[in-house]
């Protein structure tokens, strides 16, 4: 299956942290179409390949996305919200949203027009945000309940060259890379067994990855998420570049041995890569997987992304493809790290 098709199918479903079942099921459906078996569990969706008597490598890609949750319904039918994950509130005014109530509803984030605005340059406080679903208070309370999730829509769309924009590319882009990597590994003799986990609730703290790592007790872990690609005004030492390949993490919280090995593998195979230095924790599922049980040697292999945590997240298809190649190659080279 083409990676673009995988990405398209993964982004057409919505899965806000804690309500990501549909997205995990979509990953399972794509994998089934590719001939893989999967299991759904508390942590998300797991796909195992290889001889299970060999040491286990866990590959994690979180399947949830940032979004909002309904906290209150006003008497005139507007919804108040809280954020699920670190949503960028600057983008909220006048967005079209989908509310997952008893029925799937469309709505708009209320905004103040220029004719009445006092200071339009202030980022709205999430507490002051209202969602207009075009219903009376009574009707809204029939169809929507506190706890229902809300997403901002943006269907996958091609920009110039290999760039695409969509909502939830954090981390459907990473999930697409892992699915493609499984495709590359199919039928190969590999020195390890693999459990790919499409994990829940990363955006709210990594609950899915934490429980999956405990359950699987892997020898090694590869965490595939998205990471910052530089835009104007960014510091080059803090960001990667779009189109320059997967970002291999180096951090005191990661395994330097595994990071070095990933770099050597990429060099040996001529896969473009970038080094991402994180001076403490990584802000990814690697933080919880790395300290699971007695500790797991972990590396991050990330897809560069622009406009993170907005509905217009943007990635380069070549970066996803090279991330898939590097993950597959890292698995093939992982035997030495398991001793």
């Amino acid at each position: 299956m083409e990676i673009f098709e995988i990405l398209q199918r993964l982004t057409e479903v919505n899965g806000v942290a804690g309500d990501e079942r549909r997205a995990a099921e979509k990953a399972a459906e794509i994998l089934a179409d590719m001939g893989f078996q999967t299991e759904m569990c508390y942590s998300g969706c797991i796909c195992r390949i290889g001889n299970d008597e060999l040491p286990l490598v866990m590959i994690d890609a979180h399947i949830d996305e940032i979004g909002m949750t309904v906290t209150y319904i006003t008497d005139d039918g507007f919804l108040k919200i809280g954020e699920c994950g670190g949503l960028d509130p600057r983008v909220l005014p006048a967005q079209q949203v989908t509310v997952f109530g008893k029925e799937t509803l469309k709505g708009v984030v209320a905004s103040v027009p220029p004719h009445l605005a006092k200071d339009g340059s202030k980022t709205p406080d999430i507490k002051d945000i209202y969602i207009d679903v075009g219903l009376s208070g009574e009707r809204a309370r029939e169809l929507v309940s506190p706890g229902d999730t809300v997403v901002i829509e943006n269907p996958v769309t091609r920009l110039h060259g290999g760039r695409v924009t969509a909502k939830s590319l954090d981390n459907r882009a990473g999930a697409a890379a892992v699915i493609a990597a499984l495709g590359l590994l199919r039928g190969k003799e590999i020195p390890v067994s693999v459990a790919a986990v499409f994990s829940a609730k990363e955006e709210t703290g990594g609950a899915g990855a934490r429980t999956a790592a405990y359950t699987l007790a892997p020898h090694l872990a590869i965490v595939t998420d998205v990471s910052f690609a530089a835009v104007a005004g960014d510091r080059p030492e803090e960001c990667g570049k779009m189109g320059k390949g997967p970002m291999i993490g180096f951090s005191p919280s990661l395994s330097r041995e595994f990071s070095d090995s990933a770099v050597n593998t990429a060099k040996r195979l001529g896969i473009p890569f970038q080094i991402e230095v994180m001076p403490g924790r990584t802000g990814t599922n690697a933080d919880v997987i790395g300290i699971s049980r007695r500790g797991v040697k972990t590396v991050t292999i990330s897809v560069p992304i622009k406009h993170m945590h907005t509905p217009i997240e943007t990635v380069d298809m070549a970066d996803i493809e090279n991330t898939a190649r590097l993950i597959a190659a890292a698995v093939e080279s992982a035997g030495d790290l398991c001793d």
Binding site: G86, T310, I312
Partner: peptide
């Protein structure tokens, strides 16, 4: 041509 209006990620 399709485009998106963006800026620096809020994290940075």
């Amino acid at each position: 041509v399709n485009g998106v209006i963006g800026g620096r990620a809020i994290h940075n």
